[in-house]
Amino acid sequence: MEAQVLLRRLLYARRTESVDLVNSVCREIAELAGVSPRLQDRLDVALRNAFL
């Protein structure tokens, strides 16, 4: 559940073009542990695309 919230927060941060918020959410995503492999893949993609 927390991972989904972080993905939504990252989407919001990108839409508002808030670099500070994107950085903050990316740090939280990177520190998140214990998610399924499928969800981890989604998180990894989100991190790679955070600044595109």
Rank of each mutant, 00 (worst) to 15 (best):
A13I: 01
S24D: 11
Y12W: 09
V45R: 11
V5N: 15
A30E: 04
L10H: 04
Y12D: 08
R15E: 02
L39W: 08
R14G: 00
F51T: 04
L43P: 09
Q4E: 11
A3T: 09
R14I: 00
Y12V: 13
R8T: 13
V5Y: 15
E17I: 03
L43V: 04
D41G: 14
I29Q: 05
A13S: 01
C26M: 04
S24I: 13
C26I: 11
N23G: 10
V45W: 14
R27W: 11
A50E: 00
Q40E: 13
R9W: 13
F51V: 07
L32G: 02
A33R: 07
L32N: 02
R27F: 12
D41R: 15
S36A: 07
L11K: 09
E31V: 02
T16S: 01
G34R: 03
S18F: 03
V22M: 04
E17M: 08
E17R: 03
R27E: 12
R48S: 10
N23H: 14
G34F: 03
D41Y: 15
L52T: 14
L43H: 03
L39K: 09
V45D: 15
R48C: 06
S36K: 06
L11R: 09
L21Q: 07
V35K: 01
L7W: 08
I29L: 02
L32T: 00
L11I: 07
D44E: 10
E28A: 03
V45E: 11
C26A: 05
S24N: 14
E17V: 03
L6E: 07
E2C: 08
I29A: 01
D20N: 09
G34Q: 01
N23M: 06
L10V: 09
S36T: 02
L21K: 12
L39Y: 10
A46S: 00
M1T: 14
A30G: 06
R9C: 09
L21T: 08
D44L: 11
V5H: 15
R27V: 07
L11E: 12
L43S: 07
L7T: 06
Y12L: 11
R15A: 04
N23T: 10
R15P: 02
A50V: 01
P37C: 14
R14M: 01
N49E: 12
L6N: 08
V25T: 07
L7E: 06
V22E: 07
I29M: 04
V25Q: 08
N23W: 11
V22T: 09
Q40C: 10
R9Q: 13
E31F: 01
Q4D: 12
A13R: 00
L21C: 06
T16P: 00
S24V: 10
V25K: 10
R15G: 02
A46Q: 07
D44P: 14
A33S: 13
R15I: 02
R9D: 08
L7N: 08
R14Y: 00
A30F: 07
V25N: 07
L10S: 01
G34D: 00
A50Q: 01
I29T: 03
A33P: 10
E17W: 01
M1Q: 11
L11H: 05
Q4H: 15
Q4I: 15
C26G: 07
R15D: 04
R15Q: 02
S36P: 11
A33D: 06
M1S: 15
L32W: 03
L52Q: 12
Q4T: 14
R42C: 14
R48E: 11
R27T: 12
